[in-house]
Computed example of a mutant assay.
Amino acid sequence: MARWTFQGHGGEIAARSWPVPRARYVAVLCHGYGEHIGRYERVAATLNDHGAAVYGHDHVGHGESAGERVLIADFEPVVENLHLLVKQAIEQNPDLPVVLIGHSMGGMIAARYAQEHADELAAVVLSGPVLGRWDVVGELLAQDPIPPTPIDPATLSRDPAVGSAYAEDPLVWHGDFRRPTLQAISEMLTTINAAGSVGELPLLYLHGEADELVPIGPSLEGLEAIRGPRTESRTYPGLRHEIFNETTKDEVLADVTAFVDRVLAAAPGSAVPELADAPTE
């Protein structure tokens, strides 16, 4: 795993990559609100085993990146920070297809990215994405001052170890929502709904049916606004918000890699892809 920084909106952006020999595609991870890309080590390892060179970064105001904590007044520059990372990944892996994987707020960012930069992507995967509407945003904006809003670790996964690690992680934000961030989320959802379909870009939507943090109903409504002819969806009974950290995470990640295999196999001139060699230490 390699670490570096690049100059983005709001200052220095902390990035990571997990390379493999003879990668067959690039996977770019886009994390959610209040967390950081370091929480995706296991996801990156699974994708490495599947033949992906993996990239990710901490959003402005998150993790090890610059900026006031969890303060995002406009998400369009955050999308452009992601664009800078994708361009670096493409430069380092020329001619390889790129799959964008976004979780929660990162799913919202990835959806907007797919609307604006679909030509750079082979596919996009959305995990428990903030789409359509997020009712808690309107409820909190209606209050002055905004009440305490720390995320309950128990809403993340049925695995108590996930919640404990989250609660003890010093790079995770454990404080309250910022009003400008809530307003920016609301505005971005309006923008995504208005911009419409991702067109022919293959999209896989995944969501836990017991997600209390980003309820599935409004998110599925948002999916209909961006759905294209190659959009697929799967929901998981009993799973909470972080489906990549759930007790059945292997099943969920297998759905992701199977989707990627279908996309790569369907690409013009492609044969059924073979797995890359296992990554070396």
Score class of each variant (00 low, 15 high):
S270V: 05
A271T: 04
G11F: 04
Y55C: 05
H50N: 07
E116A: 10
V78A: 11
G63H: 11
L223R: 11
Q183P: 07
G61L: 12
A195V: 04
E116C: 06
V137Y: 02
E187S: 06
E246G: 07
R230W: 05
P215H: 06
A123F: 04
L189H: 03
L182A: 14
K249A: 14
W4L: 09
H117S: 12
N193L: 02
S65A: 09
A110N: 14
V125G: 07
H241K: 07
E139T: 14
F6L: 05
L140F: 11
S17E: 15
S127E: 15
R179H: 02
A254H: 10
P160G: 09
S104P: 01
E246R: 08
A184M: 09
S65L: 09
V20K: 05
H174W: 12
A161F: 03
R179N: 08
V162C: 05
R42Q: 13
A266S: 14
V256Y: 03
T181D: 01
Q183S: 08
D261I: 00
E232G: 08
L203Q: 11
G10D: 02
A27G: 13
I243V: 14
H59F: 01
T5M: 11
A45K: 13
G163N: 06
D49I: 04
L140I: 06
V198P: 12
T191R: 13
V99R: 14
Y166W: 14
A225W: 05
P148A: 15
V252E: 01
A66D: 15
P148T: 12
R262W: 09
D152S: 14
D159H: 03
V99P: 03
S164P: 00
L213A: 03
A165F: 14
G138T: 00
D58W: 13
L141C: 03
A266W: 10
G208F: 11
T181R: 15
A267S: 12
A15S: 07
P273A: 02
